[in-house]
Amino acid sequence: MISSKKSAGRIAAMAAAAAAMFSMVVPTGTSFAIDHIPCRAGENFLKIWSHLDGRDSVDCYANRGRIGFGGWWVDKIETGNNDLIYSDANGDSVRVNRWTIITYPNRPPRVNYIEIL
């Protein structure tokens, strides 16, 4: 009977140690996810004008994270209060700092994904 109590105690101690180790290894910070949001005048969100196959689009994004952009051609970017990286079809990653407006009137980049830092 004494050995079964010791065995149960060891198992409980090992489970507690494993739980403590897991909580130290897994990050517990706040996670962020980029959001596609409605565009509103006067807001400082990331705003991107783009086109593909005869369709035009204006999209706004908020919060840190990364999202696919589907290979759309980007005509204009307003970063608002966001630092941005986009990856184009050539495999280049381009950083655009906050409070920047860029237009691409002649050779727009074809963007695979965008990331708000």
Rank of each mutant, 00 (worst) to 15 (best):
G65T: 08
N81Y: 13
Y86N: 02
W73E: 08
I67E: 07
W49E: 02
G42D: 08
G54D: 07
W73N: 05
L84Y: 02
I85G: 01
F45K: 01
V74G: 00
G42T: 09
C60G: 05
R66T: 13
G65K: 04
A41N: 14
S31I: 14
D59Q: 12
N82E: 09
I67Y: 02
T79P: 04
C39A: 09
S57E: 13
P38N: 15
G68N: 11
A41Q: 15
I37D: 00
T30P: 10
V74Q: 00
G42P: 02
N44G: 12
N82V: 07
S87M: 14
S50F: 00
T30L: 15
H51W: 06
S50T: 02
S87L: 13
V74I: 09
V74R: 00
D59W: 05
Y61C: 05
G71Q: 09
K47L: 08
Y61G: 03
I67S: 05
N81F: 13
A33G: 09
F45M: 02
V58A: 10
W72L: 05
P38C: 14
P38H: 15
W73P: 04
G80M: 05
A33W: 11
D75R: 10
R66H: 12
G65D: 07
N82I: 06
C39H: 08
K76L: 11
I37N: 01
R64L: 11
P38T: 14
L46P: 00
G80H: 04
S31A: 15
L84H: 02
K47T: 08
W49N: 03
A33S: 14
F69M: 06
N82D: 09
